[in-house]
Design a binder for these strands. Structure first.
Length: 490
RNA sequence: CGGGAUGUAGCGCAGUCCGGUAGCGUGCUUCGUUCGGGACGAAGAGGUCGCAGGUUCGAAUCCUGUCAUCCCGACCA
């Protein structure tokens, strides 16, 4: 491991790339656009999965699994859906290889699939084709299903975690008897995402609706949570879609209501992906490395002994051997790093790079005094604490760190959210400060497109429960009833 | 997919213009001294120069193709 990390000020992109690889979260694979998620990174993802999965179960959902491959014909059944995804689909055309006689393995042209298969970029089509067989009556509804899966979107430009050709996610797909119920479901799941982002990732998010331009292909309404990264760019952290009856109509999924009326089923879908790892990294980390929220950190407390000889180490280890079970009993994950091959300073730097929230350093001086040095990763403060009462101190410290990094991110977002009233001011703030910009917009896709072309900023969302206020569009001067949030985005 | 850059030891790089069988830092191994913020000394190991062709007596170096990564653009959850 080489020393040092490019600083965020020098080159934010490079800082991010180095951090992801040096902190052992992920690395590039031999396959274009595809990454290897390493054990340390995957452990964080598993913790996210576990928390989200519990939240899905608590809201009545069950997991299932649908195929990786989707018959090409399914895609063309929903017009806007196919249009949205057509340009980034991987397609399976053959099912066999052969030896060409010259020692090369080639595709066997005789083994051509009668119907080509799409590697799923999302699963609405295969799932709604399946739901047709599951639903006849209002008694079969609602269907509340989630799947954890990989999907493939052949992106032109990729970045570790933020946009990869293959990524891991969950996709919820629900079916309802009424429009109202489906809308409520979409809103409920958005709130689950917001809750998760704020209480687990410690990333404050804006809950909002997408404009027509930014809406999911095939949805009537797309709800989203938007987060702000430290470089002033926005990141969409999760989406929840109200799909209306679009997929039910495309796949002919009807049910008989209590009143005996035949109608199409109402749908939602919602998802978050390994992109959340990117949000986690860019929201909190600093020039020394990762800063992880305690609730998602693979290791919450690391203990580093400081000693000159075996006698001193043994004395410290005896104490630590008693301490570890106490911490574990409180549900705290601990690692005792008694490797003799690295010196303490090296270990300090390494665990800072990897974002371990709390570090304990224990030396002979501490053993004499009955103390421990406690360092917190988020503020880099070090304090000496009595061994008596240490466990309670750490327990509280983990709670404090979780809250502190959330508050810090919230303060950053507040300071980097700017109201502007003219297009000139908009452009100036965008270039000089970045962040979210709250401005009046005339509500037309044309104006939104113009702004995007001229400034690269997009409307991230129309916040839910948005304050209504009379104003004029900063570009066209047409009347507007509310401000919307703009930003340059990942 | 277009423009630019890069690919040489685990990692970071020099060498490429001007062809002659590969070097530096770090990391790794062993031993010793060290150990409260990325230790020091000594001795060692480690490279099909991204891959495939071609030119040449000889290619990391020149030519062609290809793959991957980074930056810019286009595209996009």
């Amino acid at each position: 491991m080489s020393k040092g990390l490019t600083s965020r000020n020098d080159d934010y992109s490079q800082w991010y790339n180095e951090l992801v690889t040096k902190a052992d979260l992920a690395e590039h694979s031999a396959v274009r656009g595809c990454m290897v998620i390493k054990p340390y990174g995957y452990t964080i993802w598993e913790k996210m999965q576990a928390a989200l999965d519990t939240m899905f179960k608590d809201t009545g959902h069950s997991n299932a699994y649908f195929p990786l491959f989707i018959p090409k014909s399914f895609f063309s059944k929903e017009a806007s859906h196919v249009e949205g995804f057509a340009t980034e689909c991987a397609v399976v055309t053959h099912y066999r290889l052969k030896n060409d006689g010259a020692g090369n393995i080639v595709v066997d042209e005789e083994a051509k699939l009668e119907e080509e298969l799409i590697v799923r970029p999302t699963s609405e089509t295969i799932i709604w084709n399946t739901y047709r067989g599951w639903i006849q009556s209002y008694r079969d509804l609602p269907i509340l299903v989630n799947q954890w899966a990989n999907v493939v979107r052949w992106e032109m430009r990729t970045r570790l975690f933020l946009r990869t050709a293959e990524f891991l996610w969950q996709e919820g797909h629900t079916a309802h008897a009424t429009e109202q119920e489906a809308i409520e479901e979409a809103e409920r799941m958005l709130e689950v995402y917001a809750d998760f982002a704020e209480n687990w990732l410690a990333v404050p998010v804006i809950r909002g609706k997408k404009t027509a331009n930014e809406r999911f292909a095939g949805a009537l309404e797309t709800y989203c949570i938007e987060a702000l990264m430290q470089d002033g760019k926005a990141l969409q952290a999760g989406t929840s879609h109200f799909l209306g009856q679009n997929f039910a109509k495309a796949f002919d999924v009807k049910f008989t209501s209590k009143e005996g009326v035949l109608d199409y089923v109402w749908a939602t879908s919602w998802g978050v992906s390994t992109r959340l790892m990117g949000a986690l990294i860019m929201a909190h980390s600093d020039d020394s490395g990762l800063v992880l929220p305690p609730k998602l950190a693979p290791v919450q407390v690391v203990i580093v002994p400081i000693y000159k000889n075996d006698d001193e180490l043994n004395r410290i280890s005896t104490y630590v051997d008693g301490l570890i079970p106490e911490l574990k009993a409180k549900g705290i994950s601990v690692k005792y790093d008694d490797r003799d091959t690295q010196r303490p300073g090296f270990k300090f730097a390494e665990y800072e790079l990897k974002g371990v929230p709390v570090r304990l350093a224990i030396g002979s001086r501490d053993m004499d005094n009955g103390t421990v040095e406690v360092a917190r990763r988020d503020t880099r403060e070090k304090v000496t604490v009595a061994q008596n009462g240490l466990v309670a101190h750490i327990e509280q410290l983990l709670v404090d760190i979780q809250q502190n990094i959330y508050q810090k991110a919230l303060q950053f977002r507040t300071e980097n959210t700017t109201e502007v009233n003219s297009y000139d001011e908009f452009k100036r703030v965008l270039d000089e400060k970045g962040g979210f910009i709250s401005a009046h917009w005339d509500g037309t896709p044309e104006t939104e497109k113009q702004i995007k072309e001229e400034t690269k900023a997009t409307i991230r969302c129309i916040p839910l429960n948005n304050k209504q206020e009379a104003g004029v569009c900063m570009v066209t001067g047409k009347p507007s009833t509310q401000r919307v949030l703009f930003a340059r985005a990942y």
